[in-house]
Nucleic acid binder design. Structure first.
Lengths: 226, 226
DNA sequence: CGGAAATGATGATCAGGTTCAGAAATCGGA
DNA sequence: TCCGATTTCTGAACCTGATCATCATTTCCG
């Protein structure tokens, strides 16, 4: 290993190319079988066979079966996240920006609902696999992008709040996560419906539930503080 | 089967009592083993042995291993839900009512964090098992209780909104679900911290993100409607 | 080129969840 | 009490995800 690094990545090298090739075959085979038979019914043996690799090889590329799902999706999710937040119109209201961004996710998920369900189950929980890690990094990136939008909206006066932008974006993420899950469990989730529902949810968060335009905020709350 | 129903549930009967007894033993054994070794490490064979039943018997009482977790928790969750919403002070502000109710859940979950994690994973997703069904009925009941609180708050003028109470309560549930999950994945989740965080989230939903105290609502939105 | 080191691939094997054919227990009527 | 019908119980057997000792390929270097 010592000075081997000096070689850099001059050329792909046979090993590297073989690995890439296997990885691709595994992704394709797994995606097909999962879509066709569902996550549980598709066995790792079938996937390995369809990919033309040994059973053990599968587990060199994914830590466990669930990790295969992330393996399939992670690249696309990275792209989607870029696309989602790149398209945000800086001049638009915050809820418009947000629903525009999230709608990219909705449309992507609707293309493969069964796999999206497995994916979305993990939106908050941590798994062990390397690929699952990457998935959660993607989630963090999404929340950071929301934070950016919130910061800008606060600065430009589009919204007003006493809370930190990080906190607000976390709340928004909760709403998105809840809405997208509610949507994905439906029989045949339509992106249009899902996005419309999310818009309502976000609008409610923006408007709040304030009783009336009272002169100002009362100076003190009535007690409980922690 | 025909007229057998006429007999009603006169007395427990030996069969019934035996079943109840087995069920109880299974619950106790499973709860202990899950708590001691964790969900994955505790095998169904161990649980069956500790409960003094055959391996197959386990799967008469729970459709699958995960279902055992719901088996253990469902009764308690029913009780907890009652307690949570019974304690709501009708005179208190909505967010106080809500965080009082939810804090009952937080405290219950904190008593057995590893099992609560399994439980909360399913807060939105549907599983097949009978016990999981019951769990989801409990979730529906919780949302209905929130709806009641929201309806009352709307009627009494404590809050104001154009949305239906059912929709508002769903949004609130999303916030709760997100917050409680965020909390439960922590190393050693403290109920106090979790509840405090939830309060912030709810307060933000109540206050909203309105830019300023504009004279009144503008008569029309600027376009997008669905 | 030759061969040794490093890396990658493989499937027999294991472990644990789940099933199911048959055994055991209970019930209900005579 | 006895007997057949019904319900409940059981663990051997099965299936599938995951591991790991072994083998195959590639790379490196003289």
């Amino acid at each position: 290993m010592k000075r081997a690094a000096a070689k850099l990545a001059v050329q792909p090298g046979l090993r590297e190319r073989n690995k890439l090739d296997k990885l691709e075959r595994i992704k394709v085979a797994a995606a097909e079988l999962f879509a066709e038979k569902g996550f549980d019914a598709a066995t790792t043996r079938e996937i390995a066979k369809a990919a033309g690799v040994g059973l053990g090889t599968l587990f060199l590329y994914a830590e466990d079966k669930r990790d295969i799902v992330f393996l399939i999706f992670n690249d696309e999710l990275d792209r989607i996240t870029d696309e989602a937040f790149a398209s945000a119109d800086p001049a638009a209201p915050l809820d418009v920006q947000l629903s525009a961004a999230f709608s990219v996710f909705y449309r992507a998920f609707s293309k493969n609902v069964p796999l999206a369900r497995i994916l979305l189950k993990e939106l908050v929980f941590f798994s062990r696999g390397t690929q699952a890690q990457r998935f959660h990094e993607g989630r963090t990136r999404t929340i950071n992008c929301i934070t950016k939008l919130v910061e800008d909206a606060l600065k430009s006066g589009k919204i007003r709040a006493d809370e930190k932008p990080e906190f607000i974006s976390r709340s928004i993420f909760y709403l998105y996560a809840g809405a997208v899950r509610w949507w994905i469990v439906a029989e045949r989730p339509s992106p249009a419906r899902g996005i419309a529902d999310l818009k309502r949810v976000l609008a409610l968060q923006l408007r709040g539930l304030q009783a009336a335009a009272e002169p100002a905020a009362k100076p003190r709350h009535k007690g409980a503080r922690g």
